[in-house]
Write a protein that binds this DNA or RNA. Structure first.
Lengths: 178, 178
DNA sequence: TATTGTTATACTCTATAACTATA
DNA sequence: TATAGTTATAGAGTATAACAATA
């Protein structure tokens, strides 16, 4: 996996050379550390609902734009269509989504939510809201708004708003047929 | 891997039910997204030096406290001692660290940096400084300080300062002998 | 010939257990 | 009996290629 696997390297000993900024004061390190923590917690909290974050992401996207094809869904989420097959399989197995053949293009499957999914999705939203509260518990409304705004700007600057996860971008462009 | 694999789910379509906060306005989502981005970039930037972030973490820790045993190193970084073996193997293979038998406890290996490592570590520090600038490019000094302070508080509240990565904690407690 | 969905394979990471040598 | 380090294995997760059906 990709992350700063070390932590709290602001120990008491001295560094002789460049004497760099302690990691705990590095925004980049804090972001990596917090990002991993938050993603882990999200998966822990969703587990009782039988979901992982990718499932939640798919369900959210389908609920926003019902009837997307698997390919469209994969593109919009920045995952490869091959991986989407497995996610849809799992969701369909739990009767949370249905595959429907497109009548005009019989290659394509259009994905629709079941009523069961709508109920579950509300629960999942509540769970993620809870995580939000958990993470920003120590902040007042003003601080929290400021932090979210700053993070939003950083994400925008890093081109993360366009919707394609940078860690996947190179793979998405892959064309399987030579 | 663990992360929010979906993105920019603040599309234009409507949600019928709870109508939850768009992900792009969720601090938790932004943290996860940025954290993954930053960790990916760190690995990309370190790659030309032949390092990945775990190697960098080990080198930093050893430079702060030279002569730690592999077990101590593993504990301080929140990774399992089994994983530490491979990291040290790789670093030793590139002549960046040396294993030295502890004279009193001949089971233990104390890890020391080579001169080559000290040079490389300075370069790595510069690279990570560059990442810091890259990520916070759009912020003035004041905003950046505020953001880092807020992130630091969030990390502290989440018990991330204690040094053990939450994603690894459950594994660290494992005792291999029944 | 290109595209949608699928399946199969490989490769990396990580988790766990088991072994050795020392204590 | 316990601990430090090592090795081996198994399991996720993910990337890549190849295939059938359809366009």
């Amino acid at each position: 996996m990709i992350w700063f696997s070390y932590n709290h390297l602001m120990g008491t000993q001295q560094r002789e050379h460049g004497d760099p900024t302690p990691l705990a004061e590095r925004g980049a390190f804090l972001l990596s550390q917090l990002g991993y923590h938050v993603a882990s917690r999200a998966n822990e909290l969703l587990a009782p609902l039988g979901l992982r974050t990718p499932h939640y992401g798919v369900l959210m996207q389908v609920s926003r734009e019902e009837g997307l094809t698997q390919q469209q869904l994969a593109d919009s989420l920045g995952v490869h269509r091959n991986a989407m097959v497995g996610l849809i399989d799992e969701l369909e197995g739990r009767e949370l989504v249905r595959r429907e053949r497109d009548t005009r293009d019989r290659r394509a499957h259009r994905i629709r939510l079941t009523d069961r999914a709508r109920v579950l999705l509300d629960e999942a939203d509540a769970v993620i809201d809870g995580l939000e509260r958990e993470v920003f518990d120590g902040f007042n409304r003003d601080e929290r708004a400021r932090l979210v705004a700053l993070l939003g700007r950083a994400a925008e600057r890093a081109d993360l708003r366009a919707g394609i996860h940078p860690g996947l971008r190179r793979h998405r462009s892959t064309r399987t047929t030579a």
